[in-house]
Amino acid sequence: MKDNHVPHAYVVVYSTSQAIKIEKLLQERSITSKLVPVPRQISSDCGVCLQVVGSDIALVEAILAKSEIEIQGIFQ
């Protein structure tokens, strides 16, 4: 995979619907994100989370705070 060397961060959310809602929100602001299964080391949840580029974290956090979306956490 091409992006193997870019450090990723994971936005862990409560549900898939919420993940898609956030994905759309980020898309509107041209921030790339990808829905992926939650990495096992982060949570035992069977759902999906959003993979974002590590350097976008501050931006993502600001957007989520502004939209008053409560998430489980952001992990690197």
């Binding site: 549900s15 898939t16 809602k21 829905l35 069977c46 759902g47 999906v48």
Partner: peptide, 21 residues
């Protein structure tokens, strides 16, 4: 299955359901 498995088809299914929502 929408939003259950995290693979591409499951995510696509979840997106379709979300779009209707």
């Amino acid at each position: 299955n929408p939003g259950r498995s995290g693979h591409r088809l499951s995510v696509e299914a979840a997106r379709i359901v979300y779009q209707t929502r």
